[in-house]
Amino acid sequence: MATPPQPQQQGAGPYNPYGAPVPQQGGPGGPWHAGPQPHGAYGTYGAYGAHPEPGRYGCRLCGAWPAAHATVRGHQGLIVLMRFLSLRGPFCRDCGLASYRRMSSDTLWQGWWGPLSLFITPVTLLMNLGPRASFRKLAPPTGGYRPALDPGKPLWRRGPVLLFLTPVLLVLLGIPALIGIALLVGDDTPTLSVGQCVADEWDGKHLRLRVRDCGSPKAEYRVSKRPKTSADGCAPLDRITGSDYGAMGSTLACLTPLPK
């Protein structure tokens, strides 16, 4: 004969795994007194964690508090398509920093693969700085129903960030280096003025122009014109020297042969 079901107490509902009492600050039992808690938004372990008292929110991942309401974002560029990712809080300090670092790190190597993603990715990374600042202001997490996430290495020490920063640093450092080399090496043609006299002289490796006194027998040419561009041209028998793309600007000069 089947055993009849036990009568339920008046007012008791079906078993609710999230209806267990949670620690609450204050009260007659001390700061960690676990007394009966009302069922509802602030008295249960719900999808957003433990709520020790009305108006205080627990981390959605571990239930610890204090927690900050913030949304961490990510982006994936898929050449033609793209994905916008987001993870909404509240988060405690450790879970929030772990989520920020993971999603930002993934965005740094997944977010550039598309025309629009080239512009969306830096905006996404900048938007994550606000939640990061909120998480860093929080006290260490306490009272959770599971351990908080390990924040791990700082973002700037992670592999994707180093891969991203390396070409950026090379570009930023390479531009001044190229300018410096151009200034040091530059164009071998001296800066000439109209009326000066020059001569070709061998320096052991190359034939170079050197300024000479116009009365010297070594003088071979007189500077008759300083065109701004090569399109301006020189007289038919003149020799043109220099360039109009040097590091210091145009070094063009029209050299008229001196009579011998």
Rank of each mutant, 00 (worst) to 15 (best):
S216C: 04
L118Q: 12
P17N: 11
G114M: 01
L173S: 02
L78V: 04
M248R: 13
P38R: 09
P31N: 08
T251Q: 07
A177T: 13
G174E: 11
S224V: 12
A219M: 10
D106K: 10
G19N: 11
L129Y: 02
R60G: 07
L255E: 04
Y18I: 03
L129E: 13
Y42T: 01
G195P: 10
Y221F: 14
A12F: 05
L209R: 10
K137Y: 01
C62S: 01
L138V: 01
C92F: 10
K153Q: 13
T166C: 01
P141L: 07
T71F: 11
A64R: 02
P190T: 04
G55W: 12
L209D: 03
D238L: 02
K218P: 00
S86R: 14
D232P: 03
Q196N: 03
A41S: 05
L85F: 07
K137E: 14
G215K: 06
A148E: 03
G35C: 06
T124C: 04
T251N: 09
L138S: 03
G74Y: 05
A182R: 12
M248D: 01
S230N: 06
P66F: 10
P160T: 08
L163K: 07
A68H: 06
R60P: 01
Q10K: 08
G186S: 09
R222E: 15
W109V: 06
